[in-house]
């Protein structure tokens, strides 16, 4: 299991467009990919709606977890990027 914690880079937070882009990228992997913020339940990274329920604002720390290290790296990089511009 690989985990990586990154800071949200989109100024709007993990909202509509960033969440949709992350869910699409996560959907390309066979392995389960989970996202969480500290103290909250993990959510499925292939669901934009579940990602939005994290309520992760700009600057929040999000942990990515999966059996697939490449998936973790890709999703973590997306979270850290400004996806709304």
């Amino acid at each position: 299991m690989t985990t990586q914690t990154v800071v949200v880079g989109s100024p709007v937070g993990l909202h509509a467009r960033p969440a949709a882009m992350i869910a699409t990228a996560a959907g390309a992997y066979e392995e389960e990919i989970l996202l969480s913020i500290e103290g909250e339940d993990e959510v499925d990274a292939t669901s934009a709606l579940m990602i939005m329920t994290l309520g992760a604002d700009f600057g929040a720390s999000v942990t990515v977890e999966s059996e697939n290290a490449a998936a973790v790296a890709e999703i973590a990089a997306l979270i850290a990027k400004d996806l709304d511009s």
Partner: peptide, 14 residues
Amino acid sequence: GATAALATDRGLQR
């Protein structure tokens, strides 16, 4: 497009 994607969202499906 975004609305269509939400309709078929996996979290909603589950």
